[in-house]
Nucleic acid binder design. Structure first.
Length: 478
RNA sequence: GGCGCGAUGGCCGAGCGGUUAGGCAGAGGUCUGCAAAACCUCGUACAGCGGUUCGACUCCGCUUCGCGCCUCCA
């Protein structure tokens, strides 16, 4: 069915970390948008702070699709670095054996949050040849050198635009507060590793390269894999704000240093998640993985709601109160959708939307188009809920209009991903509950309210809620 | 020290130079046998002090408090 989505495509605008301004978004390839999103380092279970970033990227992706674009998204899996190597050594298993369960867990977590899958999830260990090739190009351009220990570094001093993303200047870097003492083999403290020579702590994790055995640096993996799947120049690159420096700055320098072309048009960064107003940390006891929260009985969609409902460039405060509020809010939305369905029955949707629905839809689009203002988009959704309920209550919403409204809600949910996901199935009523329902109906007919209430309580004890409306009893699985 | 961000009613959380954000919680009401749901009404919120302005939560400055990055943490 064709929905009445206004053309937001022309009006999308995003804040670009590179320019520090909002600007209208244009893809390089017309209909297709190519985006690279920094993925997890798979040495552990991801925590909810990580998922705030992945949620932001999900909204971005869904908004682009909503606006009519085809999205080609890459999310890398960092499966070789200090932490993964350390973990595998401690566990006494090969690297891949160590990381695989965390990769599986990561995908399971994405599913429980209804985060749409990316098109590609390349693993670093599968792309070492591409990284080596890229480093060779940097050598050819005079931007890389090998130190005495065999490691290869990027020569920041040879790349004048270094610092343009993080807006840092090199003199500041040199005076940096944290200068590692063991970095003497670098020519300059600002230089970063492209290739790390093997040392004992790497165990058997090593690849052959023109510079001897070793392993790739962290930054080079994103450059190599981004280019492999998206080309040497692409539209969007996202990540958490803490990736901005040094990771993204380094990636940018490497990539443009190798190709001589612009690497990414728009860089977008998501602010941190806080928990009860504090930074999440193990010592504060407020460090939660997604699994921790699911185990506490919170549903994925409730957590999705919480993670979604803030502007991505603003720190978001995670509280358990907020999850409780999300639960109630979702119940209201669910209630509304059910009611629309009942009102619509199987009536075909009006081709014309009721005026007030069209207006709300317009606001919804405008909010998202303006640098992904999800809270405002949510406000529009709730305006629809309120006015829709009101119209259904006074009987002024015709079934065909209800059907059209439902189609709009479904359309909006393409971005929000809240409605058609994660609701407990309305399982078939067990025979005992059905019997109670029937008995209650009879009691009600006889105006035996005491018996009616008793049966309602009994059903509640079995996990079924019953409500009385104009057209009889309605049952819902709790 | 450098670069940057924030302080909104009980909680979460948008926003704008002058007109309601929204959600949750709370109070009252309508409906209902009751309950639930739904709808209606209700909060003199914009850290403090100055300034600009006819008018500032919204711009500027200062102060206080909090936060992020400054070599591998989303």
């Amino acid at each position: 069915m064709k929905t009445n989505t206004p053309p937001v495509r022309a009006s999308l605008q995003f804040y670009n970390s590179l320019t520090r301004h909002k600007a209208p978004f244009h893809s390089e390839n017309g209909r297709q948008v190519r985006m690279y999103t920094c993925g997890p380092t798979v040495y552990n279970f991801a925590h909810i702070g990580n998922f705030r970033a992945y949620m932001f990227e999900d909204v971005l992706r869904r908004t682009l699709r909503f606006a009519g674009y085809d999205v080609l998204q890459v999310m890398n899996l960092t499966d070789v670095d200090d932490k993964t190597i350390r973990g595998s050594l401690q566990a006494g298993v090969p690297l891949k054996t160590f990381t695989q369960p965390f990769i599986d867990a990561f995908f399971a977590d994405l599913r429980s949050l209804n985060i749409e899958p990316a098109e590609f999830y390349p693993a670093a260990t599968d792309h070492v040849p591409e990284m080596i090739a890229l480093i060779q190009r940097l050598f050819a351009n005079g931007l890389a050198y090998q130190s005495e220990d065999g490691s290869v570094y990027f020569k920041v001093s040879a790349w004048p635009s270094y610092g343009k993303l993080a807006h840092l200047d090199l003199s500041g870097l040199r005076a940096g507060a944290r200068v590692a003492q063991d970095e003497y083999e670098k020519e300059s403290v600002g230089d970063f590793a492209l290739w790390k020579a093997w040392d004992e702590q790497d165990g058997d994790v090593a690849w052959d390269s023109p510079w001897g055995r070793g392993r790739p640096g962290w930054h080079i993996e994103c450059s190599a894999m981004g280019m492999k799947y998206l080309g040497e120049t692409f539209d969007l690159h996202t990540g958490g704000i803490d990736n901005l420096f040094p990771h993204h700055e380094n990636e940018l320098a490497q990539s443009e240093g190798a190709t001589g072309k612009p690497f990414v048009h728009v860089w977008m960064h998501c602010a941190h998640l806080r928990v009860n107003g504090e930074k999440m940390s193990k010592s504060l006891g407020n460090f939660f993985t997604l699994r921790d929260l699911l185990a506490r009985g919170y549903a994925g969609r409730e957590l999705r709601y919480v993670l979604l409902n803030g502007h991505y460039r603003q720190p978001l405060n995670f509280t358990f109160d907020a999850v409780e509020a999300a639960r109630t809010s979702l119940a209201r939305i669910d209630e509304f959708v059910d009611r629309l369905r009942e009102t619509a029955a199987s009536t075909p949707a009006d081709p014309e939307l009721p005026g007030w629905v069209a207006e709300i839809q317009r606001q919804f689009c405008a909010a998202l188009s303006d640098d992904l203002n999800v809270p405002e988009a949510m406000a529009a959704l709730f305006a629809l809920v309120r006015e829709g309920n009101s119209a259904m209550q006074n009987g002024s919403l015709r079934p065909s209009e209800a059907a059209a409204t439902l189609a709009q809600v479904t359309d909006m949910d393409g971005v929000l991903g809240l409605i058609s996901f994660g609701r407990r199935d309305a399982r078939a009523m067990p025979a005992d509950v059905a019997a109670l329902l029937e008995a209650r109906g009879a009691a009600r007919q006889a105006k035996n309210w005491a018996e009616s209430d008793r049966l309602r309580d009994e059903m509640a004890r079995l996990g079924w809620e019953v409500r009385d409306g104009k057209d009889g009893q309605k049952v819902k699985k709790l």
